[in-house]
Design a protein around this nucleic acid. Structure first.
Length: 468
RNA sequence: GGGGCGGUAGCUCAGCCGGUCAGAGCAUCGGACUCAUAAUCCGUGGGUCGUGGGUUCAAGUCCCACCCGCCCUACCA
């Protein structure tokens, strides 16, 4: 499976919303790797956005400097969040990116034409509007622009796109999002502008082949990363031969991924992605998270404060498949204490201690499995429902804790203790296996605590985050 | 303006094609237990399922209108 995240533009540092998408992609990648499937997990940054130029000007630093600094912060999420991406592309520095964008441009030449355009342009949106003000409320005033741009014949692909999505050859999940896209396409597609004046872009971006006065529209540039990130062999393997190509995207950019991108590929005669998984947004304390609104919900800071397991667990266990989710520190702490400390951590602790206390640390033979959850986890992930998958894993924790109460090893003779503790150690080991895609660090610690023939009393795996 | 999503116990939410669908978790309260990170297990209370109509033998579950929140899209029929 080829799994991608969107590549955020790096006008600021990453926020929790980026972390959500990365962690979701990471779970899919780890899950499918665990199943023995070939996986390539791709992410990166969009360095070529005009917004980066503006952010640099506002901050009084060079574009290169700002872009490098912020891109490094995004790439640094790998360590902070235990991400397992195979490659990280930066559109301004990746060796093959520019050439790849140019190649796709040329391959679609039969659908490109120039048109004079006059209108109001919002640099914040990188879009034209018939009237002001900018609907997104960007600070910068709309600019009166009169120029000639390149246009792409998107209108030509309307029927093909409808057929693609309706037939499921291009899967869009959740269904509500698929319907949204279908409604948009069915309403009629206009050709889109796919270049910008190089002068207004301050020379930042990729020049249009054969027209250096124009730079390639940043979305065209950015979308291409899904194939330009791959070298020739990689392209063949992951974009031509791979049967499952999945884009994870936020709800705000569905149109680009489910309409523009497939149309570009159709025009260029290239293979298409097979699925687009759309997540909704996070709010923080009831307020919209935006990169410009300060450093609220900084994932690296949250990891520093609460640990990677708590942060990943909140993102996976608490965020619904449909609908925005509100993040607060209190919710993260409550969820971590309830599930990780009181549930999983305490379970491992009581099991290990009983083995030490009653069986002198010797691990008895494994008993019957307590619950079978791998299938439910898999089905939930196929359905792109991370919360349901995480909940399924937790059935093991609850089942094991209930089993302890039911069998009461402390009241049994040695044979009884061996039987129930054998079952419990087995359950903890299974838990470590099932947990790996979600909380790789925690899974490893659980595995270490209950691995081997002899156990010792473990330190608390997950100390409570709140004061008792 | 058009389209979409959400509005279900104090909180976070499940409820697919209409008929045990009025639920789960947390919180509250009561009980049990003592292996464990003052953790765990069992049970209880609590809701006119946004509002008002309609269809139906039967509607959170379908239709219409409206209110609130959010998203996408467009401001020319």
């Amino acid at each position: 499976m080829y799994i991608t995240t969107t590549i955020p533009y790096v006008n600021a540092r990453p926020h929790l919303g980026h972390a959500l998408e990365l962690v979701q992609a990471d779970v899919l990648a780890r899950h499918h790797r665990r199943r023995g499937e070939p996986v390539r997990f791709q992410t990166g940054t969009d360095d070529n956005s005009l917004k980066n130029v503006l952010a640099a000007e506002a901050a009084g630093v060079g574009v290169r400097e700002l872009v490098d600094r912020n891109a490094a912060a995004f790439e640094g999420l790998r360590g902070a969040l235990d991400l397992s991406f195979d490659s990280f592309i930066r559109t301004s520095t990746h060796p093959g990116h520019r050439a790849g964008v140019e190649r796709i441009w040329r391959a679609t030449a039969h659908d490109l034409y120039t048109r004079h355009y006059e209108g109001l342009y919002c640099v914040g949106c990188e879009q034209f509007y018939p009237e002001g003000p900018c609907p997104d409320g960007h600070e910068a005033p709309l600019q009166q622009v009169s120029e000639t741009n390149w246009f792409f014949r998107l209108s030509r692909y309307q029927d093909e796109l409808l057929d693609l999505i309706r037939s499921g050859r291009l899967r869009v999940e959740p269904a509500a999002r698929r319907n949204e896209v279908l409604a948009f396409v069915a309403a009629g597609l206009d050709d889109i502008s796919v270049s910008r004046s190089a002068a207004r872009a301050r020379g930042w971006g990729i020049p249009v082949p054969g027209d250096p006065a124009q730079v390639v529209y940043v979305w065209w540039d950015a979308l291409a990363n899904y194939v330009t990130a791959l070298d020739d062999a990689g392209y063949e393997r992951w974009w031509v031969r791979e049967p499952r190509k999945v884009h994870l995207v936020g709800k705000g950019v569905i149109r680009f991924h489910a309409v523009y991108w497939p149309a570009m590929l159709l025009s260029a005669g290239l293979p298409l992605p097979t699925a687009i998984f759309v997540h909704d947004y996070l709010t923080a304390g009831g307020r919209k998270i935006s990169k410009s609104s300060g450093n609220a919900a900084d994932p690296a800071a949250l990891v520093h404060a609460y640990g990677v397991d708590a942060v990943r667990w909140w993102l996976l266990r608490e965020v619904p498949r449909v609908g925005d989710a509100d993040f607060t520190d209190a919710r993260l702490v409550a969820r971590a204490d309830e599930d990780l400390a009181n549930g999983l951590g305490n379970l491992v602790s009581r099991v290990a201690v009983m083995v030490c206390r009653f069986l002198d640390g010797h691990v008895p033979p494994a008993g019957e499995p307590l619950a079978e959850v791998s299938r439910e986890v898999h089905e939930a992930l196929e359905d792109v429902d991370f919360r349901r998958a995480a909940r399924a894993v937790w059935q093991l924790v609850e089942g094991a804790n209930a089993y302890v109460e039911r069998t009461r090893p402390w009241q049994q003779d040695t044979a009884g203790r061996e039987k129930s503790l054998g079952t419990l150690v087995g359950a903890c080991r299974e838990l470590a296996v099932q947990l790996e895609p979600f909380l790789p660090g925690a899974a490893a610690r659980v595995a270490a605590a209950v691995g081997g023939d002899r156990l010792s009393r473990p330190e608390p795996l997950f100390p409570r985050l709140s004061r008792p």
